[in-house]
Amino acid sequence: MKSAREIVSFIGGAALRAWRSLRDVGTWSPLLVGQMRRLGVDSIPIALFIAVFTGIVLALLSSYIFTGTVPNYFVGALVGKTIMLELGPVLTGMALAGRVGANIAAEIGTMKVTEQVDALETLAYDPGSYLVVPRVLAATVMFPVVTALAIGVGVLTGWFTAINLLDLTTLEFVKGLRMFYQFKDLWFGLIKAASFGLVVALTGCLRGLATQNGAEGVGRETTRAVVIGCEAILALDAFWALVLL
């Protein structure tokens, strides 16, 4: 095991490098919008696909749980709360960990094994500023945006299911939705989503930059990036529940 001193100096060194890369605004800022589109906007379809089914299932499940015990309008409360607090951020995060984490790790890993990362350095680019910062910032900003859309669509399909397949009126559903709603529910979900974006993108970048041994290495690091990204999401999810709730 490494000594505490080594660990501290490692973290210090990494923080210093991150700060240097962030300071080089001229290098990363022109690349940011492209990454926001690629990592965020292009991920919207998969996130909405998941949200639609989550909304339907949640409405049906809560109706099954509540029928005969509590008033029907609790369906609205359960759908709203669970999607905002947990399922919206986490399911979207998991889906994007696959899509975004794999995309980043595979692209940077391929650049690494084909010496493109070395070429960047010899041309006086810092790979941190040119490759890592735009991806990490884009994911941190766009995960909450995509998650917010997913929450909206999930709640909408929950409502649609409730009024069409269950014996609920719009009024009852909205009553349930508003009864326990706090503004905190929403920002709690979105803060989680931002932290998921940060770790997923950072993991993808670091695994990509650590790639060795050609195509096989790219495959291995891509898989690793996705697995670590998903594990980190679950750990962070528990962390935020402990700290913020």
Partner: peptide, 14 residues
Amino acid sequence: RRQIGYVFQSAALF
């Protein structure tokens, strides 16, 4: 690095 041109084996084009 500005003084040194590096021609990579695989060309390493972006």
